[in-house]
C-alpha cells in the first residue's frame, strides 16, 4: 500500500470514529429528553396550584371583610369571630355537611362471613379513602363515622374500628366532592375497584347529587397538642 493511501484510509477511519461517537452521544441525549409524562405532571401541578391560589385569594378577601367588621366594635367583633368559628368547625368535622359526591358500598365476598383472606380488611378501606382524598373529597364518613385527621380505620380482633367505634359490613362510605372525579378515581382501569372485584369483594360506586356526611360524634380533645401562639410575631 502506498503511503498516500494509508494516510487517506487513516483519515477516513478517524472521521468514521468521530461520526460514530457523535451519533452515539446525540442518540443518548435524545433519549434523555423529557417524556410526555413530565409535561403532564407539571400541568397537573399547575392546575392544583391555581386552585390553591384562588382559594387563598377568596380567604384573604373574606378575612379582610371580617377584620373591617370586627374593628367597628364589640358586637361586630363577636359576629366576625362567630363566623370564623363556624367555618373552622366545618373544616374540623364538627358539623354535618352535605353536597354532591359518591356513595360506595363494600361487602365481603359472598358466602364468607369474614372467614377468608379476601374478606374486606382495614387496609382496603384505607386505600379507598386515600383514593377519594386524592381525587379531592372534602368530607368522608364510613358507616356514620366522620373521618377527621386523626381517625383510624383499623382491625381490632375480627372487627374494624373507626374513631374507636366498631363498624361491620357492608361498609358504606360517603364522600362529598366532584362526584365524577371521585367515581372515576375509584373505577380507573387497574384501580382499587377492579382489584377488589378480582378478589371477589362486592363493591358499588354510585355518583350522587346529594350526600350527607355526619359530624364527628365525639368532642375534639387535645391532651398533648397546643396551638403555637403567633400573636406578636408576623
Amino acid at each position: 500500500m502506498k503511503k498516500k493511501e494509508l494516510v487517506s484510509l487513516g483519515l477516513i477511519a478517524l472521521a468514521l470514529g468521530f461520526l460514530l461517537a457523535f451519533t452515539y452521544r446525540t442518540a443518548n441525549r435524545v433519549e434523555r429528553t423529557v417524556p410526555y409524562d413530565r409535561a403532564h405532571e407539571l400541568t397537573l401541578e399547575l392546575k392544583a396550584l391555581a386552585k390553591e391560589r384562588a382559594d387563598l385569594e377568596a380567604q384573604a378577601r373574606d378575612l379582610r371583610a371580617k377584620l373591617a367588621k370586627a374593628k367597628q366594635g364589640y358586637s361586630e367583633a363577636q359576629l366576625a369571630l362567630e363566623a370564623e368559628v363556624k367555618e373552622a368547625a366545618a373544616l374540623a368535622g364538627a358539623v354535618p355537611l352535605e353536597g354532591p359526591g359518591v356513595r360506595v358500598v363494600v361487602d365481603n365476598p359472598p358466602g364468607t362471613a369474614g372467614g377468608t383472606i379476601f374478606a374486606v380488611r382495614d387496609e382496603d378501606l384505607l386505600k379507598i379513602v386515600n383514593e377519594l382524598r386524592a381525587a379531592g373529597a372534602e368530607a368522608i364518613s364510613i358507616n356514620g363515622q366522620r373521618l377527621v385527621s386523626t381517625s383510624e380505620i383499623r382491625t381490632a380482633g375480627s372487627f374494624i374500628n373507626v374513631n374507636l367505634q366498631r363498624i361491620t359490613p357492608p361498609y358504606e362510605i360517603l364522600a362529598i366532592g366532584d362526584s365524577a372525579a371521585l367515581k372515576a378515581a375509584l373505577e380507573v382501569k387497574g384501580g382499587i375497584v377492579e382489584t377488589l372485584r378480582d378478589w371477589g369483594v362486592r363493591i358499588q360506586v354510585e355518583a350522587r347529587q346529594q350526600v350527607k356526611v355526619p359530624a364527628l360524634s365525639k368532642p375534639l380533645r387535645f391532651d398533648y397538642a397546643r396551638a403555637v401562639e403567633t400573636g406578636g410575631k408576623s
Binding site: A77, Q78, L81, E82, E84, V85, A88, A89, L91, A92, G93, A94, V148, S149, T150, L220, R221, F222, Y224, A225, R226, A227, V228, T230
Partner: peptide, 22 residues
C-alpha cells in the same frame, strides 16, 4: 369573647389552621 376563642382554637388545631406543639 374568651369562650368563643377557646372553641375556635380546638377547631383550628383539628383543621390544621394553626401550628401546634407538644
Amino acid at each position: 369573647l374568651k369562650e368563643l376563642k377557646t372553641e375556635l382554637n380546638s377547631y383550628r388545631i383539628e383543621a390544621g389552621l394553626v401550628a401546634v406543639t407538644g
